[in-house]
Design a binder for these strands. Structure first.
Lengths: 245, 245
DNA sequence: GGACTTGTGTGGTTAGACCACACTCTATGC
DNA sequence: GCATAGAGTGTGGTCTAACCACACAAGTCC
């Protein structure tokens, strides 16, 4: 059509141009959470680029957890703006772990740091702790391993969210997701799941108790020991120091 | 060609299939850092998909900081595996900040947490501190604002890396990048840059001194005050609590 | 021997076509 | 009158085939 009038001298690839346009729409508030992007064909025509380039830009936004593409028409159709950074960051971290650039031990350590900070900083009357208590009751009633683990994820996420810092809870969620595959595979190898589950339950209760006492420091210590103990038992986070660059 | 024999029932999009193949190559060690992916056309033929789908997968990997695509032939040509999660995560965070889903204040708070943890945990004889000291000497000699800020970035990155946790330093880098645009714009508005620079210099020296004394706790306190003070002066991180969801 | 031309392989971009899907409208039959 | 089957419409998903810009390598001319 116009074959590189614009982006040739800027040495900017076409899909980056599209990306820039969309980012501007977001910054300016013309695109808001839950809103829909123009249809791919319409956007391509409007920006005078090919649909391919528009699609590449959308793939990138999708990978970042900023939009979700849905086929068909009506409710879930079209490309809509969402806000799910945790899943996106988690996938990215997972891939970097696969390249052995990010040691699993460092991820576990970071998780301990963030989660213990969250409980030590949160106020005891934060609503998330009520939710956390409810989840513990549910865990007492569930015997299946999968159910237990799903509730465990929700419990720890609730703790992370109690501090009221969206960035910390987002990163927590993505760290967890990045190593979930490793942890789940090893859970099956635990010597005695029942006794482990019993220990985890009591440790969870102790953490919440410390929080309710207003003793953030104790809560942080308990959380750190809880997480480190679990991964140690599962055989994770033992990467030798010489494996690092 | 074969129009959805495979991924129809798996409800998996074609580019995700490509993504999965590449991730497996990474996990299995068939693709290593610095290695090159097969050419797009070759990969498309090998996986029996269109080049379009291969390209969408590569765009995603590029957005995650896992590969870099280069045209031409020879040295920098082809799609090579890299490991630059910081830039990629930074871009993602920046976009989420644009949607106002991640408050700038939370990013600053997280940065304070990670960086103060890093200096408190690092050993005083970590080589990164030597590099940090060298950077400070360079800062003393530089008067231009841009040079000063670039060295400042390098200094703080060196502090973050001193703890030896790749995940923490990566996240630190991306947090910094996500708000760099905001901070840079406000720097020009500082009442008196010269006096600010003088203060920053002395605070930097004090931090390194605490580290050298082996007093990680004091270093952490100083780092926290240093960062918070800077952003407060620049007018960032003041988001009111009611702005949060 | 040096400067030029050609060849080759890479990613970058485009146009146009078709598919699967989910909804909406409209005729059809009772 | 109303319920249902069918056509219509708009969405993203995929594919093909072609061309461009680039960077290097090898041959070619002077």
């Amino acid at each position: 059509m116009w074959s590189n009038h614009i982006n040739y001298y800027l040495s900017m690839r076409t899909h980056e141009l599209v990306l820039g346009w969309i980012e501007k729409q977001l910054s300016d508030g013309h695109l808001v959470l839950g809103g829909r992007l123009p249809a791919e064909r319409a956007l391509a025509e409007q920006l005078e680029v090919s649909r391919t380039s528009v699609r590449e830009a959308i793939r990138i936004l999708e990978a970042m957890g900023l939009v979700r593409a849905g086929v068909g028409s009506g409710k879930d159709a079209g490309t809509v703006v969402i806000a799910e950074p945790a899943m996106a960051l988690g996938a990215a971290l997972r891939l970097h772990v696969a390249t052995q650039h990010l040691p699993v031990a460092d991820i576990v350590e970071t998780r301990v740091l963030l989660e213990s900070w969250a409980v030590s900083r949160a106020k005891a009357d934060a609503p998330e702790f009520g939710e956390a208590a409810r989840l513990l009751d549910e865990m007492d009633a569930s015997s299946a391993v999968d159910d237990f683990l799903a509730l465990d994820v929700a419990f720890h996420l609730a703790l992370a969210e109690a501090a009221g810092n969206a960035v910390v809870s987002t990163i927590m969620g993505s760290l967890r997701e990045a190593i979930e595959g490793y942890a789940a595979a090893l859970t099956a190898n635990l010597p005695d799941w029942e006794s482990t589950a019993r220990r985890l339950r009591s440790e969870h209760r102790a953490i919440l108790e410390a929080v309710n006492d207003g003793d953030g420091g104790r809560a942080a210590t308990l959380v750190a020991a809880h997480i480190e103990g679990y991964y140690r038992e599962a055989g994770l986070g033992q990467a030798p120091a010489e494996a690092r660059p």
